[in-house]
Design a protein around this nucleic acid. Structure first.
Length: 179
DNA sequence: CGTCAGATTCTCT
DNA sequence: GAGAATCTGACGC
């Protein structure tokens, strides 16, 4: 997909990511998964976003151009794969939370930490461009039924914790178990 | 340099 | 439903 797809606010991109195919050329091995669950993070105003604490070494990639990858490690164990969207400095991002395995997937993919492990995604992909790197999105199939909910695991986000910024295909059996 | 908490997951009970 | 695993960035001293 081209720059136009990513250069919009994260809520729009997150919704449109459903059904798209995430591809990772892992040293010659093409790993593919169809995206069935995402979350949008709306920049510095969004108390659930890392960007709300301002620009730091870790979050600086989010303040850059759309179409770049933001990966971070959480709890010392799990990697979270995000896509930077919207215009420069808006710090919008989309978290990929679950995919349906298509090719060369090892293990389960029904959670943000699990899908990174199954697709072998980690900090090496941080700050890469989806427009010319080894990771990109392809056109996929239309999601059957798009449903919205509050985001997972961000109870600390005060006024933002109930915002309906999680999107998933309600017909997919690969969405994360949490509701 | 020490502390602390985290956009999670697994393993029990 | 609770607790542990395990490490990095952010922040305070």
């Amino acid at each position: 997909l081209g720059l136009d797809f990513y250069a919009r606010t994260a809520d729009l991109v997150a919704k449109d990511c459903l059904g798209k195919v995430l591809v990772f050329n892992d040293d010659g091995v093409l790993r593919k998964g169809r995206i069935v669950e995402t979350e949008a993070y709306l920049g510095v105003q969004d108390l659930a976003s890392h960007a709300s604490k301002g620009q730091t070494k870790r979050t600086q990639i989010m303040f850059g151009s759309a179409g770049f990858v933001y990966v971070y490690l959480i709890y010392g164990i799990y990697h979270m794969f995000n896509i930077v969207t919207d215009k420069k400095d808006s710090a919008h991002a989309v978290l990929i939370r679950a995919v349906e395995p298509l090719e060369n997937i090892v293990g389960k993919t029904d959670g943000p930490g699990k899908l990174c492990k199954a697709m072998n995604l980690d900090m090496k992909q941080n700050k890469l461009s989806l427009l010319d790197g080894p990771v990109w999105l392809e056109q996929g199939s239309t999601p059957e039924r798009i449903q919205t909910s509050a985001r997972i695991g961000i109870d600390y986000a005060k006024d933002w914790k109930d915002a309906p910024l999680r999107f998933f295909d309600a017909r997919s059996s690969f969405v994360s178990p949490r509701r």
